[in-house]
């Protein structure tokens, strides 16, 4: 009987995992189809897709003219690309959050590392590592002493 229950639970877990994978693939596909833009007025407009690929860089007419500070053009385009990609990454993170949970999505997209696991009662700040623990211990003669014997 317990075996049947265990098999049912395993099957349910497999089905849940498959459904989640499908949701994840769908969310990724939807984000990939989206378009994100950043614009510096009268200079440049950058469009990227949901995976951060640069699709289009539109330079404003006349932006190469001497009076329009063309020496800053490279820096401005770089900034616009970075901003558009940031929007795309945030949207991807939000979409993943809905499927995987916020913490995993943050970790996958890279904006934030996963929060440390909650400390167990055996892993308090005052606990020593193995090396520290044995540092002040003198194990010499321990076996000879046989403290467990009366």
């Amino acid at each position: 009987m317990w075996l049947m229950n265990a098999l049912d639970e395993i099957e349910a877990a497999v089905q849940k995992s498959a459904a989640r994978q499908q949701q994840l693939a769908q969310a990724q596909a939807e984000v990939a189809e989206r378009r994100f833009t950043d614009e510096i007025p009268d200079v440049v407009r950058v469009t990227v897709n949901g995976t951060g690929d640069v699709l289009e860089i539109e330079l404003a007419a006349g932006c190469l003219d001497t009076g329009r500070q063309p020496h800053l053009l490279g820096e401005r385009i770089t900034r616009a690309v970075g901003n558009a990609r940031r929007q795309s990454a945030l949207a991807a993170r939000d979409a993943l959050s809905e499927v995987l949970g916020e913490q995993v999505a943050h970790w996958l997209v890279g904006d934030e590392e996963p929060k440390p696991e909650r400390r167990s009662p055996r892993n308090r700040p005052g606990d020593k590592g193995t090396e520290d623990y044995f540092e002040d211990k003198d194990a010499k003669g321990f076996l000879e002493e046989q403290p467990w014997l009366p």
Partner: peptide
Amino acid sequence: VGIEFDQERLRSLDERRLG
């Protein structure tokens, strides 16, 4: 991380094509 342009050539370029 960056884009550097040849400022001399930049003046004679077409914006659409450069994009």
